[in-house]
Design a protein around this nucleic acid. Structure first.
Lengths: 256, 256
DNA sequence: TCAAAAGTGTTCTTATTACACCCATGG
DNA sequence: CCATGGGTGTAATAAGAACACTTTTGA
């Protein structure tokens, strides 16, 4: 059965089987726009020595064809965090990744079709551990180098800025970097990650960086070496979460 | 302009200017009518050497009679920050105070009457510069010592925890303390504030605290002295925002 | 044998901590 | 004259910054 409705005067009249079946006050319809809420997820990955983010290309108006952050309306019986996790999982198939709420954007006119407030999240994924499935979201989806991202749909540039700022702060005070690397990594890869994320005027000093991160005692050296590189192969390390907890319990704090 | 919409399958397709402009899931239409968003504001004040917060006592169900954070639904044409400012102004008459968004709480069952997500803010006010007007909110409103706050309505304890945590972090890296003090204050008052907010196992060292805060160069000594105290009167200082900007421009950061 | 990144200590400089006595005022 | 908090400097320690050469590998 089809039901049509027409917005007329201050009423929305629903029409089924060729006659009006019920109507609602426009203001209630308007409240629909008032109270729509969504999540948007800035998905960070680290690839080719650079920070990347996963964007979708919008398949429908508004902003059709523009690149945007993956996001969706929050379902009626869904917690906010769950909605953000769902967006990520539908797009990448990944579960249990690092996810953090950053800020809520609710300017009256941020969405051209009505009042939609959106809760921004960022997540950290290991690039290459997943295949991207844009189907339910958009006409396409792919990784973009952060340095090449510009002119996103809606207020998504502002959202991205907030998330990036948060990441830059948080990465210095919590062991987030490891979420972006494979389970085993070289110290140079780790340093490159920090250099890239922090984007400081001067790069970190190799010796000081190694001294500091190793002195914290939660990186464990494996007996494996890097392979297939045209230079002296580096030792592979991994992040030991249990040792990190001990480190915290002894009253130390991660600070880079 | 008329907008038509057609309910088809499980979608509601909105039609403007003879073509579809957007569509939504039917079930979402229903949820929109039942959902709302609000702001809650943790209003911090500093009084009698202690951090205080301004609470209202609920005048209506649910949680009638319980203490709660002041908050309200966001109006249809109101930005989120504006709603938080309005809540504060209606309660205290204050405008232009420090206000910061902290986190959004959206658990499905956090509100017994329906789906309400709430955006938590904190603000910092100078106690005594205002009179409290609970009228439009609740049966009463008053300051509570933070140490005596317990068992608030809704998930407001959790919201308070988040805001307090944020304040503790932020107060060390931005000159927020001054927002809680009168324009002229003694260094001991300032230190007492930091001791109280940070709640460290050891109090700050008086000489080291003074050395550090004065060395930043944005506190200006006035020629006035404390009055009416039964001991050597302290010099009054004030925070110079222009000098603080200079301090930042020279590449320094506030860090306590 | 060359290119390319891995790996490694020491010195200097700066920031942080710890600590105790005299001073000015009101009651 | 006493109680109360105001005000002050220095020495020891710890943390951070700067810096250059040898090693191992694949091509």
């Amino acid at each position: 059965m089809r039901i049509w409705c027409i917005f007329y005067n201050k009423y929305c009249i629903f029409v089924g089987r060729n006659r009006p079946c019920f109507s609602v006050f426009m203001s209630e319809i308007e409240s629909f726009f008032k109270s729509a809420f969504s999540v948007d997820n800035v998905i960070f990955g680290f690839d080719e020595g650079e920070l990347n983010i996963l964007l979708i290309q919008r398949g429908a108006a508004p902003y059709k064809g523009k690149w945007a952050l993956p996001g969706d309306l929050v379902y009626p019986n869904e917690d906010l965090d769950a909605a953000a996790e769902r967006v990520l999982e539908q797009l990448t198939g990944l579960r249990g990744v690092y996810l953090e709420q950053v800020k809520t954007f609710g300017s009256v006119n941020r969405h051209p079709l009505g009042r939609v407030i959106t809760v921004a999240y960022f997540s950290l994924v290991k690039v290459g551990k997943h295949t991207i499935n844009p189907a339910s979201f958009a006409q396409s989806a792919r990784w973009h180098k952060l340095s090449e991202v510009k002119d996103l749909a809606f207020d998504h540039n502002e959202i991205l800025d907030s998330c990036l700022k948060r990441l830059k702060r948080k990465v210095r005070t919590a062991p987030l970097g490891f979420e972006l690397l494979p389970p085993k990594f070289t110290l140079s890869e780790l340093q490159q990650l920090y250099d890239s994320v922090l984007d400081l005027p001067k790069k970190l000093d190799k010796r000081n960086f190694r001294k500091k991160i190793l002195s914290m005692g939660f990186l464990v050296e494996s007996d494996e070496l890097q392979e297939g590189v045209a230079h002296r192969p580096a030792k592979l390390y991994s992040f030991d979460r249990v040792k990190y907890e001990q480190f915290l319990n002894e009253g130390y704090v991660f600070d880079l």
